[in-house]
Structures are given as C-alpha cells and as structure tokens.
Design a protein around this nucleic acid. Structure first.
Lengths: 245, 245, 245, 245
DNA sequence: AATGAATGAGTGTTCATTCAT
DNA sequence: AATGAATGAACACTCATTCAT
C-alpha cells in the first residue's frame, strides 16, 4: 500500500475542510443562498483554494451527493444483515437520516432539493441510486418471508417508505432541528410499518424470491460501485428459499 | 354592491396576471431561482408594473401564502363536514394537495421551502396556520369518536399526517408530476390511516372532547380570519358529546 | 414614417455612446485588455446599462463588425462608380482604411484580430464579406477593360491588395498612428498598382466579363444585405461589353 | 569547451520545452489568451517550474522576442551574401517568415501584436531591430547598384516591404495556414518587387553608398549583438564602390 | 396605470504568482 | 531542479430596484 506524502495528506484534509464547511453553510442558509465566500470563510481557505478543488458550486454539490451514495454502497452489507423486516427497515431509515443529516442539525439532503435547475432532477433524485436498491432488496426479502404485505411491488412500497422518511427529514429541517429526529422516527416509523405487515398473499411478477430492481442508466462515477452493489443485493435475493406460503 | 370602474377592473386583472405568472415560474424553476424578469415576461407586463403592485419579491410571496391560507379558512366549513374520520382526513389531504398544486404540476408549497431566509421559517411553516387548525380539529373529533387511536395528542398525529402528505407532495413535485398524485394518495393514505385507527384507549389531557389547538401569535393580515376559524372549530369541538368509551 | 419618442431617441443615443466608447477603449488598450469597466467609464453609463444593451463583450464586438460591413454595403454604389481601375482601387483602399480607423488613431480592425477565440476567424475575416465582394467586382471590371493584368483571378488579386492594405493598417496602428496613413497609402499604393497593370493577356475562366465572386454561406444578419449587394455587383458585371482584346 | 553536467543539460532542455510549448500555445489561442496553465500543460511541467525559469509571462515574451532577433543576427552574413537585389529581398522575406512561423502554422509574430500593453510597442515593433537593419542594408546596396528605384529612402522602402510581408504573414495566420505561404510569397513578392525596380535616378542624402540605418537606443540584452551586426552591415556598405549612374 | 431605461451593489469565477516541501 | 497547494486581486456578469416619462 502506497504511503501518502504529507502534501497529499494535507490536500485531502483541505478538500474535506471545504466539504464540511459547505455542509455547515448549506445547513445554515440553504444551498441556494450560500455564497462561495461563506464557504471559504467557514473553511478558512481562500477563494482560489475552493476553485482549486471544485470546478464550481454545482460541482461541489454533485460531489457531496456522490459521497452520500458511496456511503450507502460502503455500508450495504451491514444494512442488509439478517433481522426482522421491520427492524431492518427501521435501521435503514435511521441510517438514511443520519447520512442526510450529518451536519449541524439541518438537512443536507433537503438542501439538494433547493439546488440549481442546472442540476437535473434525474441527478438529484434518481430512482436508481444505491440507497433505493438497498431498500428494495430489504423489502423483497421481507415480502418473501411473509413479514411484509404482498399487495404492492417492492418498488412502490419503497417509494411509500421514502416519502414518509423524506417528509420527516424535511419537516425536521424546516423547524431547524427543533426536536429529536431519531427519537421521533423510532416512535412513528413503527406505526407506518405496522400497516405494511398485514400479509395478504398477493401474487404477481414482482413479489417473492428473485426480485431485483431493474438495471438503469447510471452516471459515470457510480457505474462500477453500483455494479458491485447489485451483486451484493443479488446475493441476498438468491439466498432466499421458496417463498413463504 | 359597488360598481367597479374599468380602471379598477383592469387593475385587479393585472395583479392576478402577475400572481398567476409567479406561480407558473415558481413551479418551473423554483422560487429561489425565479427572477422578477421571469415573472414579468410570463405575465406580459413591464418591470415597472410589477413594482406598482408589489413592494418586492418577498411581498409577493407573503401575499401568495396568504391566499393559500385564506382558501383554507374559506373552505373550513366544508372540510369539517360530518363523515368518517378516515374519509375526512382523506378529503383534507386531497384539498391540501390541490391547494398546494394549483399550478402546472409543481409544488408551490415546496417552493416556499426554497424561499429567502429573509422570510423566517416561522412565517412559512407555522404550526398555527389555518390548515393545521382544521386538521387538529378533525383528529380531535376522530379520537373522541374512537375512530382514531388515542395514544398520541392530536397535534402530534397531525404532524405525522402532514409529514406523510408533504413527503408525497414533494416527491411528486420532484418528479415533475410524473404520476397521478390524487390516485396514489387515494391508495396509500388509507394504509397509513389504517395504522392510526387501532383504538387503544389511552388517557391524557389532550384526548377526548374539548381539545382545541392553543392560540398562538398570528401575523396581522391573518388575525381576524383566524379568529373566525377558531370559532368554527370550537363549534365542532363543542358539538361533541361524551367521549366514546 | 413613425415618429420616435424621446425615450426611444435617448435609448439609441445611449447605445451609440457605448459603441463609441468601446471603440475609443479598444483603440487605447486593445480589445483583449479593454475592461467592461473601462467602457462604461468612458461612456459615462453604469455597468448595468452596458448589459442592458449588449449580451456581453463579444456581442458588442460582433455588432461593431456588422456596422463596418453595413457601411460597405451602404456605400457600394459610390465605390463602384465609374473611373480608371487604379483610381477605383485607391478610392476603395482609402474607404476601407477610413472605415477601419474611424476612431482616435488606432485600428478598430486590428483589434478585431485580437478578439477572443470564441469568435471564430470565419466570422472575423471571412472571404465573403461585403468589402471583398466590392473589391473583386472592381478588379473584374479592371481586368475586362484591360487596365489590370489578367494573369491572376480577381479573387487572388483582391487578396494581394488586401494583404497590402492590411499590412498598412496594422503597421500604422502598431505605431499608434505615428504617421499620416492616408498620405502614405496615396504614395505607396500606386507603386503596388503599377505592378498590377502590365496587361499581359491571359485567358481563363475567371477573367473577363461575367465574373462574380461565388456565393457563400452568410450569417443571418447579413443575408438580405449581401443579396442586395450581389445584385448591384451583378449589374456592374453585366454592364461590361466584350472583353478588351 | 566546458562539459555540462546532467543537471545543466536537463535544465536547458526544460527551458526549451517551455519555450516551445509557449509558441505552440500562442499559435493556438493567441498570446493574450494563453494562460500559464496552458503552457505548463503543453510542456508537461508544473507551474512552479515555469516560474523557476521565467520571472513572469512578459519575461517569457521578451525572451522569445530576443531569440527571434538573435537568429537574425546569427544569420546576417548569409542573408547579406551577394546576389541580385530581388533575389536577396526574396531570400530575406522567406527567412523572416520562417522565423516568424516556426510553430504549428500560426504566426508567432502576429501574436506579439496581441501582447500586453505593459510591453510597449517600442519593445515589440522597434525600427531598430536586427531584421530591419539587415533589410535596410540590402536595399541600400540594391539602390546603389541601380537595381532598385531610388526615389525613396531605404528606410521607407524597407517599411513598404515589411508591410507587404506582414500583411501576408497575418493573413496566412488568420486563415490558420490554409495555403502554402512560401509558394504564394514566391509568386506575389516579385510582383511587388517589379514595381520597386524602375530605376529613376533620384538624388538625396539617403541614397547611394554609405547609408546605414542610424543608431538607436537599444535594450540591454541586444546591445552587444547589435553592435556586431552594425559592423557587419557597415562592412557591406563600405564595400560598395561609386554609385551606379 | 404602465413603461423600460438606468442603476450599482453583490457574486461567481479566473488566473498570475508565491512558497513550503 | 521540480512540485502543486494556496493565495487574493481583478474581472465579467446578474438582477432587484428606482424613477422619469
């Protein structure tokens, strides 16, 4: 393994400082109203340094987004670990929120919503992103084992859960983190999940063993990682036996 | 009734044209990125005309927000009409969405989220706004009649429902209205409501008859209207008999 | 004919002030080093006003270039008036220089050379521009009447003359207008022309009556004007009788 | 002869790489728009290395200019070799063009025109530069031998020839080297020279034997070399006998 | 009531240059 | 000798707002 020089270490550190500062600022004023000068002040670097590391504001955003996704890919194994369906989903939602809200109490994720229109929504809210793949796989397994209702395809249920989760994140962000998000989710999510577990059998191509979110066009930086992730998920799906009756 | 002169008529019409154009633009590019010049182009008026009618961009926003709320106040009677709790809540959610999404398929409401920080979130997402008052009243009645679970205060349940609703609105907006929002809400909301109806009796100060969202500081233009609305809601609450067992 | 309002008049005047100021500045520091702030200072308008009239610096440049060409189109009749070939060519060269050097003693035309690479050279130095059409027509007539040597096609001779002319313009500009350009051209151009008049007969498709610069793709703003100009030139060509022996 | 260490060799090589890269870039985008980063990328060195060899951009320019001039000084002997006046002038023009256009088909020389105003035109287009001295000497000899017309001083005729030559260079560069410059000059220059050889006798202080371009202030790095060159030219002049009648 | 020319503070971005490694 | 991270002055351009007509 290559040893990094001091210079390289410092460079990585500076980039990190800028990314963190950006998160702080986005959290404070919202992305749309965060100035480059805010970020560099917060990060204690010069304007030039910012542009040394990022092509422009949007580039920074995309990069942050990538980190968010990569973190999901990195933790996929752990998130897919065995456990009751409800437990797994709750673990997922917590992690999603934690990743979204790493920073000072405002939603980095919400801020992405406020991004420039120059960033297409495709890029910002894609259905094929790592977290969605993980979630669908969790649901497919839950449906297969009979723990989750089977009258909607995994994809639709995943969207339902995400809506709920997003609603929380946004609300919490909008109140400037006025309450304990984790605690409230721990109380409310089970209520929702409760209504997802009344297992009426329902046949159809998307339920049961073998379901995997169909492949979709993926932007370049993701491609390889998503491929790996798909293989992990495929492994989970393949490991399922015959569907519960 | 006073007869309006042509000039006055024209004036009202122009103001309306600007408001509508603003909504179209907010929907298209997001409020933070909508320029005055976008609005006046869409409305086919000159910049000068815009400033003739509105003090500035924020003034326009506040005015739009007021309309949204006033519409709730105007329709309170209808929304509070008798019916099953689930049915009432669904009717409420639909109306909320309709009001939010009057325009071309993007969330005016979401856009408010993207507004300037010069408008405080208090102003933009207040707990004391008309729609919230209506919702809490509906819930209180539902709990009183035993149709809704009683293990959380009306206010908290209202927030839970709003989160879900907002999640939908935002998601739908983020996908640029890619699916039929009403249809999907009609399918999914009952699932959530299903988990709100398991009537475990649960005592506490907020449940049962007599609950009304406590009064809160209200900005000037609202004051009178909110007072009227509170009286209507109080009427509903007072009409309830002894709590169901 | 519509009467222009005071407002419109003023607007035209402001635009002109900016264009003139730009020329002064280009002349002073060279186009590449002329700042927007230089121009607006010279023109005594605000930055905003500059951008009210021009999309950006390049836009201004293109616009100036158009003026130069349009002036040629406007004066074509006069430049093509009867006269000895040498006399006509001298008159042309003078006018070209005058148009290039309207401003304070530095070559607007030279400055175009220094323009951004974002403006393609095709746009800046095209062979199909009005002045070139006029010059070729003059030469074709001179060759037809036997006053100019016939051993090179009009187009090539036109380029030879333009090179000479450009050399002067640039040199004069480079010395910051240290000498009287007109006087020097009046002395030197005849020397060059002297070597173009030794009328060896030489047949070929491009010589004699009927020659007109072939049509070429022309940018939008020019199209109609160039069409008119071509008709004028065609008229001149058609008016020639049988070629001199 | 001193043996150079490897380091010294490498150093010379790197400097050359940068100079060459600069020429390539100047040729590509024009000097005014060539960035340091363009140059170092092209040269495959780091920014730091650039500044190790050159004080700044202007320093690089001056240095390049010097090379151009020094090459003239180095080749003076050869350029002044005996021959017909026309032949000598053609040889000169060819060499001038070759030196100007060493690079990839665009005029380094033209690019100098586009240089910063911080470099005065005096420095960039001086009348006293080596090439001009050589040219004047050639002309003085041609006039003395009666091969060139005597009705203008050598200096003026030199300028006339340079204008023509520059016109070509610039034009050729502006068309991105679309045609064979050497071939065209070989065809057109004789036409010009034809008009410079009608030897009307014309008296005056500048014609005939003994003419040498008057000495002028010369920047430091040139001084010694120019002195040597003047001696060579003086030699040529002194070698002339009595003027041809 | 309506216009749109004019303003200029504010912001994103560039790029020559420095300097510690 | 070579590197490239860091700097910040300088510049292009935006856009909410004013105001004379």
């Amino acid at each position: 393994m290559k040893r990094l020089t001091n210079r390289q270490l410092q460079s990585i550190h500076t980039r990190k400082r800028i990314e963190d500062a950006a998160n702080v600022c986005f959290a404070r004023k919202g992305m749309a109203y965060t100035l480059i000068s805010d970020i560099v002040q917060e990060a204690n670097v010069s304007v030039g340094t910012f542009y040394h590391y990022f092509k422009n504001k949007d580039d920074l955003l995309i990069r942050q987004y990538e980190s968010f996704d990569m973190e999901f890919a990195d933790r996929a194994q752990e998130l897919l670990e065995d456990g009751g369906a409800a437990e797994c989903l709750l673990r997922f939602a917590r992690f999603f929120s934690r990743a979204s809200f790493k920073q000072e109490g405002r939603a980095a994720n919400l801020e992405y919503l406020k991004a420039r229109p120059s960033i297409t929504l495709e890029e910002l809210w894609p259905r094929n992103r790592p977290y969605f793949l993980v979630l669908c796989t969790l649901i497919a397994r839950g449906q297969h084992s009979g723990q989750l209702r089977r009258d909607m395809p995994p994809e639709e249920m995943a969207e339902l859960i995400m809506m709920f989760t997003r609603g929380y994140n946004i609300d919490w962000a909008a109140t400037d983190g006025a309450y304990d998000l984790r605690a409230r989710m721990d109380r409310h999510l089970p209520i929702l999940l409760g209504s997802l577990t009344d297992g009426q059998t329902h046949d159809g191509p998307h339920r049961g063993a073998g379901y995997l979110l169909p492949e979709q066009k993926v932007a370049e930086p993701y491609r390889e990682r998503v491929r790996q992730l798909r293989m992990i998920c495929q492994g989970v799906i393949d490991g399922l036996g015959a569907p519960a009756p």
